[in-house]
């Protein structure tokens, strides 16, 4: 009797879970599988077209020097952006977690996170206004400094990096803050009582204990940045060709979907490798 009740409860639970997970299956997992299949085709399986299974799309990646170079460029930009986010974000998290107290801490944290949850495209667009030649930033600097200042940042890789740091630094601040806040205050008091200076406390206690949070933040920045295409397009102009924009082109301009699928899969493999390597730290800080 109890057994039957339990089974009925499990059945009910499965019925409640089914819509959400079927939806995910249909809209995420099957598409990823379909993409794997497409990446092995010689042409789009349209009526009247010849197609067969082939590894040619993956070979195209290896044979052309351009694709690996662009993948490398994307990963390099992602690494630079991640590093800058860590360097710029950690002190903010530190101040929020250990210096500022009470209601103003809550308000400031919200203020930091808010842009992150707002429209990413529009934020990147706002940088194009700021950075354009003779734009607001040039005008502002010219007003303060002697002479005409031309930063010449528009459509450079630097502009892409600035825009991406702007987009993702709140992630690092948030994950580092959560890690720092969880540190037991008595540890710090003990260290202080034993005569440790502030820098020593930072280096020997705060940094090591916040490390899982920093790693989580780094991964959460690195992965989407490696696959970004909108930011490089809008901020990088002709300098903004990355692995992401090449994949975009295969789908919206060149219509070589099988090649695009193969390139996407190569990117996915790299990203999954990184996620897997960082998963213990991720689990510790998010779980």
């Amino acid at each position: 009797m109890a057994d039957r009740g339990e089974r009925a409860a499990t059945g009910r639970a499965l019925a409640m879970l089914a819509p959400a997970y079927l939806w995910l299956l249909f809209a995420v997992f099957l598409p990823l599988a379909a993409m794997a299949w497409f990446s092995l085709l010689s042409d789009l399986p349209l009526r009247g077209r010849e197609w067969h299974l082939t590894l040619a799309n993956y070979r195209a990646f290896l044979d052309s020097p351009a694709y690996p170079a662009l993948l490398w460029k994307s990963l390099r930009i992602a690494a630079v952006v991640t590093l800058l986010c860590l360097v710029a974000g950690f002190p903010c998290a530190l101040v929020l977690a250990r210096v500022i107290r009470g209601r103003s801490r809550e308000a400031l944290l919200l203020l930091v996170i808010l842009p992150f949850w707002s429209n990413a495209l529009v934020r990147v667009f706002s940088w194009t206004i700021l950075l354009r030649p003779g734009g607001v930033l040039d005008a502002a600097l010219s007003a303060v400094l002697p002479g005409e200042v031309r930063l010449g940042l528009a459509f450079t890789e630097t502009a892409v990096v600035i825009g991406l740091v702007h987009s993702y630094v709140p992630y690092v601040i948030l994950t580092a803050y959560l890690a720092l806040q969880a540190i037991d205050q008595s540890l710090i008091e003990a260290a202080r009582a034993l005569g440790a200076g502030r820098l020593r406390i930072l280096r020997r206690i705060l940094l090591p204990l916040a490390l899982p949070g920093l790693i989580a933040g780094a991964v959460l920045v690195f992965v989407p940045v490696a696959g970004s295409f909108m930011e490089p397009r809008l901020l990088g102009g002709r300098m903004g060709t990355t692995f992401g924009t090449v994949i975009e082109d295969q789908f919206v301009a060149v219509f070589n979907w099988p090649l695009g699928a193969a390139l996407s899969f190569i990117l996915l493999a790299v990203v999954l490798g990184i996620l897997a390597a960082a998963s213990p730290a991720l689990r510790r800080s998010l779980g």
Binding site: L32, A34, V223, G227, F251, A261, S264, L267, L268, V271
Partner: peptide
Amino acid sequence: PPIAVPWLITGTAMLVFF
């Protein structure tokens, strides 16, 4: 995965499957 996989990959995969 829906959160962690870059949207570029998810989006193009959806396009292909649909």
